[in-house]
Amino acid sequence: MSQDTLVRPVAAAKSKSARPQKKRALFAGDVRLGWILVTPALLVVLGMVGYPFVEAIRISFTDRMVGRGPGRWVGFANYEYIWGWPGFAEMVTRTVLITIAAVAIKTLVGLILATSLNQNFRGRDVLRGVFMLPWILPTYIIVLVWRWIFDGQTGLLNQILMSFGFISENIPFLAQKGTAVALLIFVMVWKGYPFYALTFLAGMQTISPELYDAAKVDGAGRMARFRHITLPGLRQVMGVVILLSTIWTMNTLEIPMLLTGGGPSNATEVFPLLTYHLAMQNFRLGEGAALPIMMLPVIGLLVLAVAGYMDKEATQ
């Protein structure tokens, strides 16, 4: 596990050392210094993450509202209310389906792009730089631009379709259920897949070309080489990227908030957005705090899976 890797370099150096006596003395001051160096970070984490986390749990058991004092203790009332809310199951399903769709498409397009870029040609580094743009550009800018493009009245997409004569009337892309969901996933993919591609590409470049040559000599086809050399070589990288990205995608608030605001008729209202609406629009902080806590088991399982992968990676 990770502890072993942490200790390993020190232990290895120790066994090599010709002066074990002095070596032991090297770590004498570590306990105090260690705590001193960790303290600022620990204070930040305890004060700015730990304390709010505990507060979130406490608030979820109250009927606290914005600007109306601390609220009363209501036990599990908020949880029961959300659980019993008719749209709850639908919202969870929606969140999970949108997340799965976005992650699956990101993975697929990322793999295709990485495979295509994994060849030698001129200008590859420049291309790679441009493909990084969606990842580095601010999400709000990307979403605002796409929202204007998809706009039902003055949007660019309508203008383009119109100028080519494909449509004669504007289509309200973001005001129709089907297209709104599809475009939400599209923007998530657009923003996310380049990062997948570039990490996959980095992973592919660590695979020894000799493996491919040997497989070719043995008569393995392109698909066989991909399946038996590329994919196994990428397993570690892919596992970490997909799991982490699933967590981020599921928690994405900016994209649905700025693109559709959850509409039309809640078709794109995913769990982070509902949390925001409960707390900041309905001012019901207790319910707003309870909802993400109810989603915590799902995210917790993903986090444990990531931690498992990371440990494997660290010990390899």
Binding site: F53, E55, A56, I59, L253, P272, T275, P292, M295, L296
Partner: peptide, 9 residues
């Protein structure tokens, strides 16, 4: 830890 959980507190 999800940001939506931290937002309110």
């Amino acid at each position: 830890i999800p940001g939506s959980l931290m937002l309110i507190p």
